[in-house]
Amino acid sequence: MRESSVSFCPVPTEQQPIHEYQQLKDSWFFRWAKLELRNYGLKLAWVWGLSWLIAGPVAAASFAPHQHLVQFILAGGAGAGVFLILVLLRLYLGWSYVCDRLSQETIGYEESGWYDGQTWTKPPEVLSRDRLIVSYQVQPILQRLQRTLGIIAILIISGSLLWNLS
Rank of each mutant, 00 (worst) to 15 (best):
T13V: 12
Y40V: 00
W32A: 02
S27P: 00
E20G: 00
A33D: 01
A33M: 04
C9D: 15
Y40P: 00
V6H: 06
F8H: 13
C9N: 15
E3F: 08
P12V: 08
R31G: 10
V6E: 13
F29E: 07
K25M: 03
W28D: 12
F30G: 01
R38S: 09
P10K: 03
S5H: 11
A33F: 03
Q16F: 06
W28F: 12
E14N: 09
Q22C: 05
P10S: 02
Q23M: 13
F29S: 00
Q22F: 04
E3Y: 01
D26S: 11
L37H: 10
E3T: 06
Q23R: 08
R31H: 14
A33G: 04
Q15N: 04
I18F: 09
P17N: 02
S4C: 14
C9E: 12
R38D: 13
L37D: 15
C9F: 13
E14H: 12
E14S: 08
C9W: 11
F30V: 01
F30T: 01
T13W: 05
S5M: 11
S5L: 15
P17L: 04
E36W: 06
Q22E: 14
W28I: 09
Y21N: 05
V11S: 06
S27N: 15
R31S: 15
C9M: 03
L24W: 02
E36D: 14
L35H: 09
Q15I: 03
V11L: 05
H19S: 13
Q15C: 10
Q15H: 05
W28G: 00
S5Y: 04
Q16P: 05
N39G: 00
E3M: 09
E3K: 03
A33L: 03
S27G: 07
F8A: 09
E14A: 10
T13I: 10
Q22V: 03
L24R: 02
E3L: 12
Q23C: 13
